[in-house]
C-alpha cells in the first residue's frame, strides 16, 4: 500500500465525512427462516466498504435492504438521508435512481447490445415514451460511450452481451450502474467467478472511477485478499450479527479459520 493511499484511507475514516448508509439492529426473516439478525452498519461518503461473511449469512439480503428491494422486519435503515422503513414505493424508486446496483449474476439483458445495456442506466432520467422507441438523447449516448471507452469496451459496444466474455460482461454491468450517475454503488459478489488477477484489474478500474465520480462503494466480497487490498472499511456478517472490523489484518486469520470460502 502506498503512503498516499494510507493518507487517503485515514482521511476517509475520519468521522467528519457524512454517513450515507446507516443500519441499526436490522433483522429480516423469510417465513420462519431468519436471514439477517441484529445487523448494524455505517458507511461514510467516499469509502469502499466491504461486507464479508460466510455463505448464508444474508450478505445479499443486506445489499437488497440498502436499495429497498427487501424491507427489514426490525431495525432502522437510513440511506442518503432517507429512512427506508415505511417508505412508499414511489419514494423508494426515486432513492434507487441514486444507487447503482450490480447483482451477483449481473442481471444484463443478454439479447441487447453492450451499449443498450449501459443505456438502461439512464432510464431514470428519460421519459418512458421516448425510451419506448429506444430513442435516447444525444447526451446519454455520449455518456454511455465515454463509460464504455473508460472500461475498454467501446469497440464491442454494438455486440450482444451474451457474446462477450465474463470479464467484459462485468464491465458492462459496471458501466450500466455508473450510467445512473449514482452516489452509491452496490456490488454483490460480482467478481466471485473471476481469477484474482482479473478481479484485481476490474477493482482497480472501479477505484479509479470512484475517485473521479466521488462514489461510495459497498461491495459484498468473498475474497479476503481483494477485501484487504481495496476496502477502506469492512463489516463482517456472522449468524449472530454484524461486526465492524477496524483492524482487518488482525482479523483475517480468524476469518480464514472460521469460514469456508
Amino acid at each position: 500500500m502506498t503512503s498516499s493511499q494510507t493518507q487517503t484511507d485515514q482521511q476517509l475514516s475520519t468521522p467528519t465525512r457524512p454517513t450515507l448508509v446507516e443500519l441499526k439492529n436490522v433483522s429480516v426473516s423469510f417465513g420462519r427462516i431468519s436471514v439477517l439478525k441484529n445487523v448494524s452498519l455505517r458507511v461514510s461518503q467516499g469509502v469502499v466498504h466491504g461486507i464479508i461473511g460466510p455463505s448464508g449469512t444474508g450478505k445479499t439480503t443486506l445489499i437488497k435492504i440498502i436499495n429497498g428491494l427487501v424491507r427489514p422486519d426490525e431495525g432502522y435503515v437510513n440511506v442518503l438521508g432517507c429512512r427506508i422503513n415505511g417508505q412508499k414505493h414511489a419514494d423508494l424508486i426515486s432513492l434507487r435512481h441514486q444507487i447503482g446496483y450490480i447483482p451477483q449474476n449481473l442481471g444484463l439483458v443478454k439479447i441487447l447490445t453492450a451499449r443498450e445495456n449501459v443505456l438502461m442506466g439512464s432510464l431514470a432520467r428519460i421519459g418512458s415514451l421516448r425510451t419506448c422507441l429506444k430513442i435516447f438523447p444525444k447526451i446519454e449516448l455520449e455518456r454511455s460511450d465515454i463509460l464504455l471507452e473508460k472500461l475498454g469496451l467501446l469497440p464491442k459496444a454494438d455486440i450482444r452481451v451474451h457474446k462477450l466474455s465474463g470479464g467484459e460482461q462485468k464491465r458492462v454491468a459496471i458501466a450500466r450502474a455508473l450510467m445512473q450517475n449514482p452516489k452509491i454503488l452496490l456490488a454483490d459478489e460480482f467478481l466471485s467467478d473471476l481469477d484474482y488477477n482479473n478481479a484485481e484489474r476490474i477493482m482497480k478500474e472501479i477505484i479509479k472511477l470512484k475517485i473521479n465520480l466521488d462514489l461510495t462503494v459497498i461491495m459484498v466480497e468473498h475474497n479476503l485478499a481483494l477485501a484487504r487490498e481495496f476496502c477502506n472499511t469492512v463489516s463482517a456478517i456472522t449468524p449472530e450479527g454484524s461486526l465492524e472490523v477496524s483492524d482487518f489484518k488482525a482479523w483475517e486469520p480468524k476469518f480464514s479459520d472460521i469460514w469456508t470460502f
Binding site: G100, L106, G107, V109, A173
Partner: peptide, 22 residues
C-alpha cells in the same frame, strides 16, 4: 431470467420500462 428484472428494479426502473427493456 429473474436477474435482469431484479437488477432493473434495483436501479429504480418503472414497471413500463421493465416490460419494454427486460
Amino acid at each position: 431470467n429473474p436477474e435482469p428484472l431484479e437488477a432493473m428494479s434495483g436501479m429504480g426502473a418503472s414497471k413500463f420500462q421493465l416490460i419494454r427493456f427486460v
